[in-house]
């Protein structure tokens, strides 16, 4: 038995195996947002189908649900009714805002005509707002508290229970 070889070999091999075991079940696509706990980036965008411009800063004072979506995104179809209903249900507790990016305005207008809406939808034509929020794909939803601080981020379509839980986190029921 060559002790040097044994020790050298085990020193290389064992931590390596441990490392791989620790990472089993890791999802390489899941990346935490560094924005949580930070102030929301300031931006203003035009509302879809109108010349009106909405400034995110003006929405302070109430928690904000900021939903990034697009008409080509299949899960967004499932999520849309949840948001429409949620915006009505929590009308006095939180402000819902949709941001569409990587899309065409006429398609958004058509989508909203077909599926209804109960909150303003903004169009991020340049995609720069999505970038400032570190959006990977759609749908992604950010929850801002009354001071404009980002409290949480949800990746993928929302369901009513999650929506309520995250709103609570954002201080909507205080």
């Amino acid at each position: 038995m060559n002790r040097k070889v044994l020790i050298a070999g085990l020193v290389i091999v064992v931590p390596f195996i441990v490392l791989l075991v620790m990472n089993l079940g890791r999802d390489p696509h899941k990346v935490d947002s560094p924005l949580i706990g930070k102030a929301s980036p300031p931006f203003s965008l035009r509302q879809v189908g109108t010349p009106a411009v909405v400034d995110i800063m003006s929405l302070r004072g109430k928690p904000v649900v900021l939903n990034f979506w697009a008409t080509w995104c299949v899960p967004c179809y499932a999520e849309h009714p949840v948001l429409v209903a949620g915006a009505r249900q929590y009308a006095d507790k939180a402000q819902f805002v949709g941001v569409v990016y990587d899309d065409q305005e006429n398609k958004i207008v058509q989508f909203l005509a077909e599926n209804g809406s109960s909150y303003p939808t903004l169009f991020d034509e340049s995609g720069q707002t999505a970038i400032a929020f570190g959006v990977y794909g759609v749908p992604e939803t950010f929850f801002l508290d009354a001071d404009g601080k980002i409290v949480d981020k949800h990746v993928g379509p929302l369901d009513p229970a999650t929506l309520e839980a995250k709103l609570r986190l954002a201080g909507a029921f205080r």
Partner: peptide, 20 residues
């Protein structure tokens, strides 16, 4: 991963035991 671990340990062991 289990197979990799077994292969790695096997290799280290037979190397250490027989390389001399």
């Amino acid at each position: 991963l289990a197979f990799l671990a077994v292969s790695l340990v096997w290799s280290v062991l037979i190397l250490a035991m027989r390389v001399d």
